[in-house]
Every structure is written in structure tokens, then in C-alpha cells.
Design a protein around this nucleic acid. Structure first.
Lengths: 226, 226
DNA sequence: CCGTCGCGTGACGGTCCCGTGACGGGCACC
DNA sequence: GGTGCCCGTCACGGGACCGTCACGCGACGG
């Protein structure tokens, strides 16, 4: 749930933007002034910033520059002025995009998504690797480490581990695992899961007979304990 | 000197964009069709792409999607249509920005700068020499060294190695490799990849039967291990 | 304490995936 | 026209992997 900060002095516009973008799935904080925005952003850094240029007190350009000094959060300007000079000045100040009021919410939302997609790359990379004790799972590389050494998993074992990892701590029934790992049309022997769980344990558990992470929940299924 | 690729079928607009942006310091290549753009981009990847939506043959949306499959180069749409639906569709297809003709060059240039600033973090610039054990890859010179001695790779083998190197450690499926090495429109036999992987191994691996770097991930594809 | 149920595990045959050699066509260069 | 070089296709063989089965053991309930 990405956090969005709206800086806009007009109450009606601020509210309508807020409602529209909350519908799009953002967690929105809105403030009427640049000063309040900086305080808010320092306290709760946002993932995206929407800023009006015409603000009382510190104006939008200064606000952008101040934000830039705090970090490299994506900034979109929403302005009533459709003027090349303003666009250039805002972008030079450090904004990432500039849209003109009245804004089409669909377009604004699409621009925010595009920007987030672009920004997420350079931002602090989301560590795709997941750890469970000594087990380190790297979906990108298709490999698994047990402590320091790499262990080789077959495709089915790997998927099985991934599915369990996706629902860490939760118990998954054999049928659920059949659905997710093997496909939706498999109604075969549920014992198949047991066999692969066993094979998986032999590879990723120090003591396969007394598993520390790939655990059996008798009568229900299996779970991965962190 | 950033490389810019312009895709625009109108000769006059293409030329004026080219001249204006060369003034801004870009090294410009321009083409009239999406097909030509894809060929050009595969041969000489650009740092930025400017694309018109209304193109003869493959349209701008498909062009954007095809570009996206090749890499994450920043893409700016320049269109005569000022329509929210088009903006949303273009951004959803993978574009980064959308400006409406007639464009103010100053604004376009500022938007390109803002985009480059944002993208440069994740974008891999300066393709330097890369090493993988005894394998030394020099994309600029188009040559590969195994230990001290230079080995001759064919064009296809070289591209294959480069694509794997660009995503070191990550598994690439046969289809992904077909897309990036052979072209987006190849739906032919995926086994083709296997053959070239084999030929590549014979040249860059000390023991081709037990490859140390060009590794198979059974059921998924291939990866290059560092 | 015993029967039953659920689960772990070893063995095995079949299947599919991948490596490889062979072959013909296209292209550039001589 | 000849001659390599390179590429794409095909077929074959081997081995990794998968699914099934059967057996045995430990956990529960009566």
C-alpha cells in the first residue's frame, strides 16, 4: 500500500484528489502548505508526492527543492498554469512530472504508476531473497542456500518451497499445495505432496528427521516456520 | 553523450525534433517505423526513446511493448492526440511520459532530463569489461577472452553471452532469450537456444560438459553464474 | 495395550528435458 | 562459381526428475 502525500491549499481540490487516489489504493496524507508537508514527510516519508505550485507561504518550487534535499522521492506537480516556463522550472527544481488541472484521475493515476515503476528500480531495492534460519531462498536466481553452501532443488521442490514461503507460518493443506504447485486440474493422490516434502527436507534441513522449518501439521498439511 | 532514438513517420517533424535535440546535446538516431526502431535499438541500444503513437504498420503501443521486452530504456510518447485514454494506454504499455504535439522543445528537453535523472540510478551505464571467472567480456571491443587467449564468438553467441551477463545470476527462460537475442517476433523452436548455448559453452568453458558459468536451470532456462 | 490412521521413506518405471552430432541452406568473400 | 562460415532444424540418446506404490513407524483414541 504505497503512501502518497498531497500538498494543495484548495480544500475542495485536496479532498477530491484524496478520495480519488484512495480509491486507487494509495494511503493518502494531505496537507495545505509546504511547511506542513516537510514536517509530515520528515515524520512519515511518503513513496510519492503530489504538489501544487501555487501555495501560500513557501511556494511549490521551493517545496520541491526542499523535498529533494530530504530524499529522492518521486514528485509530481499538479498545477493550474499550463505554461512551458513553469513546467521547465518545476522539472529543473527536481520534479518528475507535471500535469495540468483539471486533471483526469485516470491519467494521473497512470502517471503515478509509471513513475513508481521507474523509481522503484533505483530506490532501495526490495530484497527479493528471503531467509528462514539457515535457509536462503533466491527466486530470481532459482537457487537455494543452506548456510553457506548452495543446494540444488528440482523445479517442483523449488516451487513447493516458494509457495510455503509465500505463506510463511500459515498451514497449507495438501490440496492447496497441489493447486498452487502442480496446477489447478490436479486431483491426483495427495500423498504426492508428502513425497516431495520429504525430498525437500532431505536437501534443506540439517536434520531431515527433525525438521526445523518445513513442518508437518498432523491432519492439516504443512507449513514453513520462520 | 546520451543516445536518443526518435520514431516518427512525418519527415518534417522527425527532422525538426532531431535538430532541436541534437542542439540539446543528444546523439540522435531517427527512424520512420516501429519495425526499423526495433532493429536499430537491438543493434545500437539507445539511452532514451521518443516515439509517436500514429505509425504505419506496427503502431506506437505495440512498439512500446516490444521495446519494454528488450529492456527498460526510458520511453517518451510524443503524440498529436490529447486524449486521456491514449495517455493511460501508452503509460500502461510501458511508456514513462506522454507529451502532446506541438511540443515546446524546452519542455520536452526538461522532461527528458528529469527522466534521465530518475532512470540513471537503475540504468546500467558505461558497459565496461565484465569478468566471470576466467571469462572476460568486452562489449565495446566485441571480444571475449578465456584466460589469456582471445576466443572468437559468432554474433549470435556474443549477444547470447551479453544478455546472460546483463542479468548475471538471474535465470532467463528460452523465450526471454529468444526475445532479446533473436528478436521479439520469433516464436520458433525454443530448442534453438539450446544449440547456441552448447556452441557457446564449447568456446568459453574449460570443460564444456561440466560448465562452470553458463549453467542450465532445468525446466526454467539458463543463467550465467559469476 | 492395541488398532487405526496419518505420515515418512525407499524403490522403480516412465516421461520429459536437455546435450549433441549431423545436415542443408544462406550469405559473404574470394 | 567455389568455398568457408554461420545459422536453424532434426533426431537420437542419456539422464534427471516425477509420480506411484508399498512398507513401516509413530501418534492418537478407545
Amino acid at each position: 500500500m504505497p503512501r502518497l502525500l498531497i500538498i494543495e491549499d484548495d480544500d475542495r481540490i485536496r479532498l477530491s484528489l484524496r478520495l480519488a487516489l484512495e480509491d486507487e489504493g494509495y494511503t493518502v496524507r494531505d496537507v495545505p502548505t509546504a511547511e506542513a508537508a516537510l514536517t509530515e514527510h520528515r515524520a512519515h516519508p511518503a513513496d510519492l508526492v503530489l504538489v501544487d505550485l501555487m501555495l501560500p507561504g513557501m511556494d511549490g518550487f521551493d517545496c520541491i527543492r526542499a523535498m529533494r534535499r530530504l530524499g529522492d522521492v518521486p514528485i509530481v506537480v499538479v498545477s493550474a498554469r499550463d505554461d512551458t516556463h513553469d513546467v521547465v522550472a518545476a522539472l529543473e527544481a527536481g520534479a518528475d512530472d507535471y500535469v495540468v488541472k483539471p486533471v483526469a484521475v485516470k491519467e494521473l493515476s497512470a502517471r503515478l504508476r509509471a513513475l513508481r515503476r521507474r523509481a522503484s528500480g533505483s530506490g532501495e531495492d526490495a530484497p527479493k531473497v528471503r531467509r528462514f534460519g539457515e535457509i536462503e531462498l533466491r527466486p530470481e536466481a532459482g537457487e537455494v542456500l543452506l548456510g553457506e553452501e548452495q543446494v540444488h532443488l528440482t523445479r517442483t521442490e523449488f516451487r513447493l518451497l516458494c509457495e510455503l514461503a509465500d505463506q510463511t507460518g500459515r498451514v497449507l493443506s495438501r490440496q492447496q499445495l497441489l493447486d498452487r504447485v502442480w496446477g489447478y486440474d490436479v486431483y491426483g493422490d495427495e500423498r504426492l505432496v508428502d513425497v516431495h516434502i520429504g525430498r525437500l527436507r532431505r536437501k534443506v534441513e540439517r536434520d531431515p528427521a527433525n525438521p526445523a522449518h518445513v513442518l508437518t501439521v498432523r491432519g492439516l498439511g504443512y507449513k514453513l516456520s520462520p
